[in-house]
């Protein structure tokens, strides 16, 4: 750590505080992932690390390298933007996959499929006039 002896004190405190916040939030999120009881509870916990955990550590890195090289260094913001965009995508896909798996096993703990009303009406009508519905279905 010989290269940081000429850093101003307030920069050191700021970087230390952001590192502490980021690492603490990430630890809290991972602890929640370990501790919570069902999958749908657990999927919420790691987002603590991917939102402010990542943002705080990226901010600490930006402040530190800007002070170290005496010029604005912003390339770390790429990681922040990338993680912020991709985390909802991955967790939505994963949650949808888990819901699909639970529903296909008729797991009673997840809500059943919620069809729109017009499709439900059509299905009820199809129960009554089954042969007609099947014929029209086969023709298509």
């Amino acid at each position: 750590m010989n290269h940081v002896t000429d850093l101003p004190l307030w920069v050191a405190w700021l970087v230390a505080a952001f590192l502490f916040i980021g690492a603490g939030l990430t630890l809290t999120g991972s602890f929640g992932l370990y501790r919570l009881s069902s999958f749908y509870d657990r999927i919420h916990a790691p987002t603590l690390g991917t939102s402010w955990g990542t943002a705080a550590i990226v901010l600490a890195s930006i402040i530190y390298f800007s002070a170290l090289q005496s010029r604005p260094v912003f390339h770390e913001i790429l990681i922040g933007i990338f993680v912020t965009i991709t985390t909802p995508v991955t967790f939505m896909l994963l949650g949808r996959a888990a819901l699909y798996r639970d529903r296909s096993e008729n797991n009673p703990e997840v809500p059943a499929m919620d069809l729109p009303k017009d499709i439900l009406d059509k299905l009820k009508l199809a129960d009554k006039t089954e042969s007609v519905y099947l014929e029209s279905g086969e023709r298509e």
């Binding site: 940081v4 230390a16 590192l19 630890l27």
Partner: peptide, 27 residues
């Protein structure tokens, strides 16, 4: 002084992130 503060904060953050990795691995 600033080197000491940074060294402690970075070491602490690394330990916390390592524990977080162990918890994720346990899950």
């Amino acid at each position: 002084m600033s080197a000491t503060i940074l060294l402690w904060a970075i070491t602490f953050a690394q330990i916390m992130l390592a524990i977080a990795m162990v918890l994720a691995l346990a899950r």
